[in-house]
Nucleic acid binder design. Structure first.
Lengths: 334, 334
DNA sequence: GAAATGTATGTTAGCGGAAACATGCGGGGA
DNA sequence: TCCCCGCATGTTTCCGCTAACATACATTTC
């Protein structure tokens, strides 16, 4: 920077002003400085700037695992949004399912120099109300409003209700459930909503079978479920497991949808091309991610005394997409 | 830090020594300093350290898009590996498909303070030999060795050859190909290998149909491909498109594998549960990611004069997984 | 026309650490 | 016994940049 200043015949401070956009600098001076910068290939040292200003231009994302298609969509939207606002994104993966682990990850990130943090809380933790250090603004991506921090997510309950209602309206007596893993937040919520909706409709609530989101677990679950003859409708907690259910049905000679109706969750891109095309609940995670970053960046850039940023909690409503894997139960026409 | 020093009755420098592990500090002093740190909740300021040392403890990942399942697996391995070595990971998504765009992303990241960069080069660029600034160590995740930089990737050609050979050995006259998008590196490589292998075996090379990796595009491609009666074997460039192919076959009344054999690529977790279970080529991207980080960190931490880090180029060999979507062509028993 | 006001730029002083060098202490060899 | 040496710790300085204040000059105001 000193070299640039010398070459342009100004002080370092003026160079700094040029770099940081428009303070009051004469057009002529600015041009001189800029050409000097270009000539010398000057590039600001972020660490020095951060040390002087206390801001880093980075936001941190804490998540439990990247392999879940779900989470990746959120992360993608976060990265895109952050880049659009001139921030970069730092990723941290949490080890275990306790609040302590999450807190450690957040602290690691703040130590690491971020201006804000987004926690994608997909796992069921030991504490229902996640309390995290607030050294920097923090936003949670989760599907419930029970947090002390601003939260954005999907209205999973609405999705599960839509799935159940759809099957009941087709005339099924009840709906069986292939649940996600007990340790997963979304899984728990989908399962609870399924159960509540059945009860509310005065139907029997058959014991759910839990999988681990994988197609294999859906297959195994369905094999057990379909051992009995009375199952006419299955609601799988995600599309991947629904694939397994479809496969199990095929192997057991149960035709879908004539003998068995199947509903998934997520609307992954292959859903319309399964055999048969899968009725499922579409989630718009990109919107969730976008809202998270935008809220976070607004808080980061808000003037210091701007009050305790209203803890908005917005939940995106998923949408039932009816395809060909659902029909009235056997022996019944509607 | 000054507070800690005062509380422990030592100089700041000694605190610094304690923080940075074992310089020569008496056990007694160390304990005093550590308890002072804990008592005061001291946390090092990364920016200051970076300013003083010129190192950041962060590695950057440059990629074209996160939504490809493929890339995410690499990123996941990178994040895990980086964390294990005490590094955090910064993510950058590239806009366009030119070398300039990639270079800008890398520069943005190095401006942003990273000690090393991994470029996941999935897109076909305007320049065959990517030349990137080497201000920091840089590793490329790609499936060919044509780079000036250390490169790790899959041996896609071997995978495509295995798929073709498998189908030819079953007795098919030739193999049709549903290719990935022209702008994709892996797609281009799989397609080239498919074509080469057919030629080498003295078979006709039917014109490939290109999709965009999505199930829908596989479906559309298959619809066109299966319009003729002479197609007995299809090699899809990924599993997603293979799903579409399977669906198209079902709608056209072509039984798989009796009338039509289908091979995919990737071995996504749903592959064994499609109808029928998909024969495909398994890729181990986690290994690729792991190798990338490990090589990168080794270079970052190598002593300055350690020579020009041998540009190792290692390619992981994929593995053909035969399931039930392939069989001898109709009217032929083997 | 002198003072008040405004604008462009320079000066000074850190931000929080870590190298590089300086200091003081104790122990071993002659 | 004295001196040299090595080790634990302290001092100084600088990393590169920016906030806050200072300065110099131009412009407006009465």
């Amino acid at each position: 920077m000193a070299d640039v200043a010398k070459l342009a015949g100004v002080s370092g401070q003026t160079v700094s002003r040029v770099v940081n956009g428009n303070d009051r600098v004469t057009a002529a001076t600015r041009i001189r400085v800029e050409s000097a910068m270009k000539q010398l290939g000057y590039r600001a040292n972020i660490a020095a700037r951060a040390l002087a200003t206390g801001r880093f231009g980075t936001i941190g994302v804490v998540m439990f695992n990247l392999s879940a298609v779900l989470n990746v969509r959120i992360v993608e939207a976060v990265v895109t949004g952050a880049q659009a606002h001139g921030y970069s994104v730092s990723l941290a993966v949490v080890d275990g399912p306790t609040e302590k682990d999450v807190r450690a990850a957040v602290r690691g990130l703040t130590d690491r120099a971020v201006d804000g943090v987004i926690v994608i809380e997909a796992r069921v933790l030991d504490t229902p109300h996640l309390r995290l250090p607030e050294e920097v603004p923090l936003v949670i991506a989760d599907s419930r409003a029970a947090h002390k921090h601003p939260t954005f997510g999907m209205d999973e309950a609405a999705g599960a209700r839509a799935a159940v209602d759809h099957l009941l309206e087709l005339g099924h007596d009840t709906v069986h459930h292939v649940a996600g893993p007990a340790g997963s937040n979304p899984a728990q919520r989908r399962r609870a909503a399924w159960q509540r909706q059945l009860k509310r409709s005065g139907r029997a609530v058959p014991p759910p079978v839990a999988g681990d989101w994988s197609p294999r677990s859906g297959y195994d679950a369905a094999l057990r479920l379909l051992a009995g003859d009375d199952v006419s409708a299955v609601f799988a907690a995600n599309d991947q497991m629904a694939v397994g259910v479809l496969r199990a049905a095929a192997e057991l000679g149960r035709r879908v949808p004539q003998d068995l109706s199947v509903v998934g969750f997520d609307d992954l891109d292959f859903a319309p091309f399964l055999s048969p095309p899968l009725t499922t609940v579409r989630q718009d995670l990109a919107t969730v991610g976008r809202r998270c970053v935008e809220h976070l960046i607004a808080r980061i850039e808000a003037p210091p005394g701007a009050g305790p940023a209203q803890t908005t909690s917005r939940f995106v409503r998923p949408e039932l997409v009816v395809r060909e894997s659902t029909a009235p139960p056997p022996g019944r026409t509607r």
